[in-house]
Amino acid sequence: MNFEESVNPAMQLAAAPLQRKARSSALPNRSTRRSKSPSDQAPSDIAMPSQQSPERAAHCAGFLTPDRILRLPEVLAMVGIGRTLLYELVKSQQFPAPLKLSARTRGWRLSAIEAFLAAKEGQ
Rank of each mutant, 00 (worst) to 15 (best):
R109I: 06
L18R: 04
D40N: 13
A42V: 03
S92H: 07
I113S: 08
P43V: 07
S37V: 13
S24V: 11
P66A: 12
L117M: 14
Q94G: 10
N2P: 04
N29Y: 12
Q51C: 02
L76F: 06
K100N: 12
A115I: 07
T84K: 07
I46E: 05
Q41S: 03
A61Q: 11
P96E: 06
R83H: 14
L89V: 03
R104P: 01
T84Q: 02
M78S: 09
L72W: 06
K21M: 11
E88D: 11
R71E: 10
F116W: 14
A26F: 04
P54V: 05
L86I: 03
P73N: 10
T105P: 00
T105D: 05
A77M: 06
R33D: 05
P49C: 08
L101D: 01
M11W: 14
E121P: 00
M78R: 15
Q19D: 12
L72C: 08
S37D: 13
S25G: 01
A112G: 03
I113E: 13
A115R: 11
N8K: 12
P9Q: 11
V75E: 03
S25C: 09
R33M: 14
L18Q: 07
T32M: 15
S25F: 04
R34C: 06
P38A: 11
K36F: 09
R106L: 07
H59L: 14
L13E: 14
M78H: 03
F116Y: 15
K100D: 08
Q52C: 09
A15Q: 04
P73R: 05
T105C: 07
Q51N: 11
L89S: 03
S53Y: 04
L76G: 06
A58C: 05
L110T: 02
A115F: 03
P28F: 05
L64I: 13
L101G: 01
D45Y: 07
N2W: 01
L99A: 07
N29Q: 12
S50N: 09
M48F: 03
A47G: 03
T65C: 13
N8C: 15
R68W: 09
E4T: 07
S39Y: 04
P38R: 13
V90Q: 02
K100M: 11
R83Y: 14
G107A: 14
G82C: 05
A119H: 10
E121A: 13
L117W: 01
M1Q: 04
S50L: 11
L86S: 01
G62T: 13
D67A: 09
R33C: 09
A47R: 13
F95I: 09
V79S: 05
E55Y: 02
A119Q: 10
A15N: 03
S6P: 01
R68C: 14
A47H: 12
A22K: 00
F3G: 02
P98T: 02
A112P: 00
D40P: 04
L13A: 12
A57T: 15
